[in-house]
């Protein structure tokens, strides 16, 4: 299995970066949850405050949540909607942007592709390398949220948290696939990473800004349209159609990346 050899080697090189990102996220989770008790005791009615935000702002950074006095609602607003969907999503798209372009830039790709490894297998190997990275971030943050909730004596429904992290993980894999495609297409690290972040960030904004307008259909181009942390964590409702879209998009993006890379010159 040459894909696996490629994946293991790539993951090995990225281990340190992934560990740092994971540690930063754990710190973010810790801070966010530590603030929650004093948040509930404050005199301000945050739900009212939320409602006073402009519609676009709410749909971007708050999501479908209307009650942030529960830990679930609070986490959706403070952690999943903004940090997870936008920042962690952008990070994985960015990181994936160098998967192929990095090797082409430095020409080390020639050592690989002169061996009996097809370009498709090379692309798949690079994609697979990011799966343990996503899994690590996903599982560690999941555990950190449970531990954090325990430390402040709050209950959190674990089954729903599992849903958020399962589908949230799939969303991150999708972001990786976006970076993989820009990486195969541009073959230059800076350009591929810029395009990948631009796509994740741009479609996130597009989805938020067009919500409840005549142009809402434009938001269907965004991955964030198919995942709603608020629905998952607060209501426990799974949009299976959305999950299917996320899964299919990932597959299509990977196949597309492989095919694009098969056809292009390494330059």
């Amino acid at each position: 299995m040459r894909e696996l050899d490629i994946a293991l080697f790539e993951f090995d090189q990225r281990r340190r970066g992934i560990l740092i990102v994971t540690a930063l996220l754990v710190a973010t989770v810790g801070l966010t949850i530590a603030v929650f008790p004093s948040f509930g005791q404050a005199d301000v009615d945050f739900n009212e405050l939320l409602e006073s935000y402009p519609e676009e702002f709410r749909s971007a950074f708050v999501g479908s949540v209307t009650d942030i006095s529960s830990l679930e609602g609070y986490l959706v607003v403070e952690l999943y909607q903004l940090v997870w969907l936008l920042i962690v999503g952008s990070y994985f798209a960015y990181a994936a942007g160098s998967l192929i372009a990095g090797e082409v830039d430095r020409k080390s790709v020639e050592f690989i592709l002169v061996r009996p490894v097809s370009r498709t297998r090379f692309v798949i190997g690079k994609f697979l390398a990011m799966l343990p990275a996503v899994a690590l971030v996903d599982i560690v943050v999941f555990v950190a949220v449970i531990l954090g909730a325990g430390l402040i004596d709050e209950d959190i429904r674990i089954a729903r948290l599992v849903l958020v992290h399962a589908i949230g993980g799939l969303y991150l894999v999708d972001c990786v696939a976006i970076g993989l495609l820009t990486s195969a297409f541009f073959q230059r690290v800076r350009r591929a990473q810029g395009a990948a972040i631009g796509i994740v960030f741009g479609t996130f904004l597009l989805d938020s800004l067009t919500m409840d307008t005549d142009y809402e259909f434009l938001g269907s181009l965004s991955l964030t349209r198919y995942i709603d942390p608020g629905e998952l964590l607060v209501a426990g409702d799974v949009d299976w159609g959305g999950v299917a879209v996320l899964f299919v998009t990932t597959c299509v993006l990977v196949v597309l990346a492989a095919e694009v890379f098969e056809r292009r010159d390494l330059s």
Partner: peptide
């Protein structure tokens, strides 16, 4: 495409100004 993958078992290559993986 297919046949040219297998034949590469028998090919060696040194690129101009080779760069490996730094770390």
């Amino acid at each position: 495409r297919e046949a040219f993958i297998d034949v590469r078992n028998d090919i060696g290559h040194i690129p101009g100004d080779p760069q490996f993986y730094d770390d």
